[in-house]
Simulated assay, not measured.
Amino acid sequence: MNRSKLNWLLAALAAITLTSCSGNEEQTMAKPEPVHFESGDECHVCGMVISNFPGPKGEAITEKEQHVRKFCSTKDMFAWMLQPENENRDHTLYVHDMTQTEWEHPDDTALIDARDAFFVVGSDRSGAMGPTLASFATEEAAHGFMMEHGGEVLKYSSITMEHLNTGMAKHGMDGMDGMDH
């Protein structure tokens, strides 16, 4: 094969490879829409019925299989997500923006991308089984909540397993008090 034919073949192969790669990038970049919580949905971590509890909820959708895992609290979502086998997998995560919905019965129209959210850790507000992480679309809203309910404002990427344990000793199972479910 002469040199010009070989160069042409390599250039064509490179063009095909680049075209197919860019098409795949566009496919994986399109994230799935949030899924509404239904009355019988159970938490992927603890198995409790999600709608029986106050506070923000979470969900994880595996981008490749579009498998949805729902959580009764943002705390359970983080507990699952921070497990070594889940940390590096491609998931789209949603949580409730608590400035757009009420604490007792979060509305699914207020679901936002968890990776873009701000969280208040260690507040006096409880979700399923006690302390939870209050989620907000803006840092300003999270700070306003923190001023009223205590805690610390963190970005998604800053939350660790240690933050999930914050307040457990302080609150114990206090979050269960007064729940009429």
Rank of each mutant, 00 (worst) to 15 (best):
M77C: 04
H96P: 08
K75P: 00
E26M: 10
E140T: 15
S135E: 10
P34A: 07
G175W: 04
A137M: 03
F78C: 09
G144W: 03
S4Q: 10
R115K: 14
D124N: 14
K31W: 02
E38T: 09
W8P: 00
H91M: 02
A11H: 01
T101D: 09
M29G: 02
G127Y: 05
A60D: 01
G175N: 06
I159R: 11
K57Y: 06
D41V: 11
M179D: 04
M147I: 04
F53W: 15
T138L: 06
Q83W: 02
P106S: 03
A134M: 07
V35A: 13
E59I: 07
I112E: 05
H181L: 10
M147W: 07
G58H: 04
S123F: 07
M129F: 08
T166D: 06
K170C: 01
G122T: 08
E25H: 05
S20H: 08
S157L: 03
E148W: 00
H171M: 13
F118E: 02
F136N: 04
F53R: 00
F53Q: 04
A117M: 07
I61R: 03
A137N: 07
E140K: 13
M81N: 13
M147P: 00
S126A: 09
T138R: 07
M173Y: 07
V153S: 03
